[in-house]
Amino acid sequence: MAGAQLAAKVGPAGTLSDSSHRTAPHVTIRGLTKRFSDATIYDNFDFDIPRGKLMSVFGPNGCGKSTLINMIAGLFPVDAGEILFDGQPLSSIKFGYVFQSYREAMFPWLRAFDNIAYPLKVMGVPKAERTVRVEKIVANLNVKIDLNLYPYQMSGGQQQLVSIMRALIVEPEILFLDEPFSALDYEMTLFMREQLQRIFVETATTTVLVSHDLEEAVYLSDRILLLSRRPARAVEFVHYDAPHPRTLKTMSDPEFISIKAHCLEIFQREVRKG
């Protein structure tokens, strides 16, 4: 299993002993059903999220990508079905969540530093330790932003970087990113993709990325979940096991190109069906 080897290469040494645990799905979704007033978004949906992989969710507009990660993160209630973490129902799992609209997700009344530290405050971590941990993550990611600024004083990319650090500060078990780069310009997007890869390589956190950019999804991911129009089905779960960090060369790798073409073909077929 190439995937397991990759995880082994990447994972911290201490967690390698139990290989069956590492290959077991991190999140198990069974019989998930979700309706909004007039539409069925999910109808008896089954899916497994692999552990320690960077996974992308790709599908037509409004098919329910955001709804899916919101339900997994416990932000939206499900109508039926269950979502299990390591076989257990949601208890005290730490999530990281990066929203598309950083402007609306940051707290403008707090300086960037306090925004990053806020999840620790919620957890009851004392102030001195909060400061140490923020400084550590800033140093780790080699971030060069004045964190004494308020979010509205920063550029979009800086704000989204702050918002990613805020998600990572709790060392989450699962990191969700909902179209995190779509409000950024191209240069910033390229930079942020590299940052995300670095973070993933260093932490091997189970990551779920919603992206509307197929090239980005394939470039960054080990797995790509292709969803159909609603009610959403998992049309295919595409594997791409090229090692991280991927570079510009990856984009001209024949396997990358053929996987991207394959995903696009499926996507177009699904869109036409509607």
Binding site: A73, L75, F99, F107, W109, V122
Partner: peptide, 28 residues
């Protein structure tokens, strides 16, 4: 803003904390 409330909730903030730390400041 719904997003800000969701952001606080996903961090594990209680209802009271969301009210105090987010909604109150949002309403200022």
């Amino acid at each position: 803003r719904k997003t800000r409330i969701l952001a606080a909730k996903v961090m594990g903030a209680s209802r009271l904390r969301v009210l105090w730390d987010v909604m109150l400041l949002e309403s200022l």
